[in-house]
């Protein structure tokens, strides 16, 4: 009958703190973009409040979990919650992949006159619809937003950093799987070393990604380089953001493993974060194949 005892938590301040935090963050961001002097500081403040809220709230949940306040029903609620949260993330990335496929398969071919649509060379002299090189073929153009398009001097390199980064991230998936296995076999020391390896690989990935951005920017491939630049930076950027979050969550898990949390049978925190990492890994694979290659 232990299932029949319901758990309802007491009142909490964290949500209202979070709401205030994200509001300050977003209002600050909007003002920053409009060139208001206090915008950036408000952003930092809002961000700090959100971080404070996340650590406070989740910390409270972890504490309650460790103290055995939760029952198996609460555990299942968390599982449902995490699963559908991740599904919403999948749909968010789907929107950007959708934009990539649409531009690639439909709008750029249309601009070149496919399907009896507008014949663009009449608008831009010498326009040739190409995919990654869209900016090459529309030289000296100003976007509708008033920004001048940046012309890349060469194509994105696929063999060097991106391939290395893919290998790194895949390797981190492998080490995480080893950590997972070790946790299920209750070999705590191994869990810790594999987790450390995963985090190090993740951070290395982020470092190389920054270097890659530096190269691409120097070569002129920028957000303002037309649709390829837009999809390239938005997809890889949001992915990098998720890797960052994943690395932070893995670090928290590492800390918790050291503190002796989790057992071979009950380690939802670990499973949730592990799945998240695998998901981020798969998103990168999709990026690598669709943005860099196909």
């Amino acid at each position: 009958m232990s299932e029949q005892k319901y758990y309802v938590p007491d009142g909490t301040y964290w949500p209202i703190i979070g709401s205030i935090g994200v509001t300050i963050l977003f209002v600050g961001f909007a003002n920053q973009m409009h060139g208001v002097s206090w915008g950036a500081s408000a952003m930092v403040l809002g961000f700090a409040i959100v971080i404070f809220m996340l650590f406070g709230w989740l910390g409270q949940v972890v504490n309650e979990s460790v103290n055995g306040i939760y029952n198996s029903q609460v555990d299942r609620s968390f599982r449902w919650g995490m699963s559908w949260f991740i599904f919403s993330e999948v749909m968010f990335f789907a929107a950007f992949f959708g934009a990539l496929f649409y531009a690639r398969q439909i709008s750029v071919p249309w601009l070149s006159g496919e399907g009896n649509n507008l014949y663009t060379p009449e608008l831009w002299d010498g326009f040739k619809a190409t995919w990654q090189q869209i900016a090459f073929s529309t030289p000296g153009t100003t976007l509708k937003s008033g920004v001048e398009m940046s012309i890349p001097t060469q194509l994105v390199d696929t063999w060097g950093l991106p391939a290395l980064n893919t290998a790194l991230l895949l390797l981190s998936g492998v080490t995480l799987t080893f950590a997972h296995h070790a946790l299920r076999a209750e070999r705590r020391n191994q869990v810790i070393s594999w987790l450390v390896a995963t985090i190090v690989l993740g951070v290395a990935f982020l470092g190389f990604q920054v270097a890659e951005y530096g190269h691409a920017y120097a070569d002129g491939l920028q957000l303002t380089s037309g649709i390829y630049g837009s999809t390239f930076y938005m997809l890889t950027g949001f992915h990098g953001f998720h890797v960052t979050i994943g690395a932070i969550m893995l670090s928290v898990i590492l800390y918790r493993v050291q503190k002796g949390h989790f057992s071979a049978d009950s380690h939802f925190g670990f499973e949730g974060v592990a799945w998240y990492w695998h998901f981020v890994d798969v998103v990168w694979l999709g990026l690598f194949v669709f943005v860099y290659w196909l």
Binding site: S112, G113, E114, T130, Q132, L155, L285, F288, Y292, W293
Partner: peptide, 28 residues
């Protein structure tokens, strides 16, 4: 995933796929 990565690398090495190959044909 590891298999896929090796596959992509191998296919590229063999020249079966090229990075972002599309240059759309301009119509008449």
């Amino acid at each position: 995933s590891v298999f896929l990565f090796l596959l992509v690398m191998f296919a590229a090495y063999m020249g079966w796929i090229e990075p972002n190959p599309v240059v759309f044909s301009t119509s008449t």
